[in-house]
């Protein structure tokens, strides 16, 4: 079924297509909602997002992909929920200055040797259940946009174009978000490798 046919089927009220689309995108929507608004209200965010999407469907312009459109509604819904809950400390305000990174000298070369890890694959490294928990913990602590970008790109394999549409930022911003997020997670793994601690 092409995306056009899918949208037509939804517009004509096809129940089984709706169920299939709901199931197909659930995990991705959950991951996105959880990244922004937390797991306790992720399902509520999904519910509100779907209600908005169902109502807005007749006005869906078929320029962007349906999936991107849907995910963007989730992002907006999650962000507005977060504002309402207003218990959110600004994560973006967290120290996040790549230029002030102490790992580089004035000439932007590495100051200390970059270490060598014990494994060559994530499976070898992640076999330690602790590391997995540790990654998860630090992933949650990333600034919101970095977290969303990393989870959607590396976690769920969304394309750069989809990410741009969903987060409404340009390519070079996405590149920066991804690099910072990956670099932070790399340091988490590195610390774990060196010390065995999270």
């Amino acid at each position: 079924m092409t995306e056009n046919e899918l949208v037509d089927a939804l517009l004509s009220g096809n129940e089984s297509v709706f169920k299939a689309v709901f199931n197909q995108h659930y995990s991705l929507m959950y991951s996105l909602a959880q990244s922004i608004a937390g797991s306790s209200i992720a399902d509520e965010v999904i519910q509100e997002a779907w209600v908005s999407a169902i109502k807005a469907l007749p006005r869906f312009e078929r320029r962007a992909s349906f999936k991107s459109w849907l995910l963007r509604i989730v992002v907006n819904e999650a962000k507005s929920r977060l504002r309402k809950e207003s218990r959110q400390v600004s994560l973006e305000a967290m120290q996040d200055d790549w230029t002030a990174d102490i790992r580089f000298d004035q000439k932007s070369h590495w100051i200390h040797p970059v270490s060598q890890w014990d494994g060559d694959t994530p499976e070898e490294l992640l076999s330690a259940r602790q590391l997995e928990n540790c990654l998860d913990k630090h992933l949650q602590q990333l600034p919101e946009n970095q977290k969303v970008a990393l989870k959607m790109r590396d976690g769920s394999g969304l394309s750069m174009e989809e990410l741009c549409n969903i987060l409404e930022v340009n390519h070079s911003n996405i590149r920066v978000l991804l690099h910072r997020a990956r670099d932070k997670m790399l340091q988490v793994i590195d610390h774990f490798q060196q010390t065995g601690e999270c």
């Binding site: 694959t121 994530p122 992640l126 990654l135 990393l150 989870k151 976690g155 997670m185 793994i189």
Partner: peptide, 8 residues
Amino acid sequence: ITSKAIKL
């Protein structure tokens, strides 16, 4: 490796 670990 980090990128793949996120995937896992």
